[in-house]
């Protein structure tokens, strides 16, 4: 009896549930709200689980990702080093290019034909301030040819070729005490003799300027080549007056010049191809 009652109850529940399910199945649209409501509740759990899984997997993946990043970082570091080297090279080339441009301008400005040379060395003996340039006999360089360069928009005298090799030549700078050349004050046109005075502090001396010229000259005046009986063509700048000394017992002024060319910055020079230079 008890079992029968239980069975009947089960059958009742079963039939009820089957009817409910069937109604739901047959009138699908009517139960849309129920479906959506249930979906909303469980979608929250789904969303939470999904986020948790994503977070967990991304955390786990990030360990591997870190390893990949480390490898990539090393690779990029290597690449960066390469690019740095390229950049250094590029800057060097850019600087050289700028120098060449200046030299080209200088070459165009020079009235005489010239050869552009690079300074490749300095006197190893330290006994003179001579410099070695990259062109020699092979390129048409001859002894006593004047050497000039351009700095700050002014073409200045560097020195002269004193020795010519097949590939290279030796240039004696103006600063050397063995150097002499005829100079003229650009403004007042007084002439004198410029010689190396202090190669350590980079000063030249202009001699044989008469004392009467004292009122016509001043600090900062430019001195240029006179071209008179000299291997240097006329009009190249030599230096700028930095000091004027009047010595009582001497008939002329003692003028100290700062060369137009800063020899410490010198990298390229132009050798002017003058005729008969060797003979002078």
């Amino acid at each position: 009896m008890h079992l029968n009652r239980g069975f009947n109850r089960s059958i009742t529940i079963f039939i009820s549930l089957v009817i409910i399910s069937s109604i739901m199945l047959l009138s699908n649209e009517s139960f849309r709200a129920t479906k959506e409501g249930t979906l909303t509740v469980f979608s929250l759990i789904q969303s939470g689980v999904s986020k948790t899984i994503n977070f967990t997997s991304s955390t786990i993946n990030s360990v591997g990702e870190l390893r990949n990043l480390k490898n990539r970082y090393d690779l990029l570091n290597q690449e960066l080093e390469q690019y740095r080297a390229i950049n250094r090279e590029f800057l060097e080339i850019k600087r050289e290019n700028l120098e060449y441009k200046k030299l080209l301008d200088l070459k165009n400005n020079l009235s005489s034909k010239s050869i552009t040379c690079e300074i490749v060395g300095k006197d190893p003996s330290n006994l003179s301030s001579a410099i070695t340039i990259s062109k020699g006999l092979k390129h048409g360089i001859k002894k006593n040819m004047p050497v000039v360069s351009e700095q700050n928009g002014l073409v200045g005298v560097v020195g002269k070729v004193i020795s010519v090799g097949y590939q290279t030549s030796l240039v004696l700078p103006l600063l050397d005490q063995q150097s002499y050349l005829a100079g003229r004050l650009t403004e007042s046109r007084y002439e004198g003799l410029v010689k190396g005075f202090d190669s350590i502090n980079n000063y030249l001396e202009l001699d044989y300027i008469k004392k009467i010229a004292e009122n016509d000259i001043s600090i900062g005046d430019l001195v240029e080549t006179s071209g008179m009986k000299s291997l240097y063509p006329k009009g190249y700048y030599i230096g700028r007056i930095v000091e004027i000394k009047r010595v009582e017992y001497e008939p002329s002024l003692k003028i100290i010049l700062q060369p137009i060319i800063d020899f410490s910055k010198l990298e390229y020079v132009s050798v002017i191809l003058t005729e008969g230079a060797k003979n002078e």
């Binding site: 079963f14 089957v18 399910s21 069937s22 047959l26 699908n28």
Partner: peptide, 10 residues
């Protein structure tokens, strides 16, 4: 369709 699984599992 809503109710299919319910019916099946009942």
């Amino acid at each position: 369709p809503f109710g299919l699984n319910a019916l099946l599992r009942v």
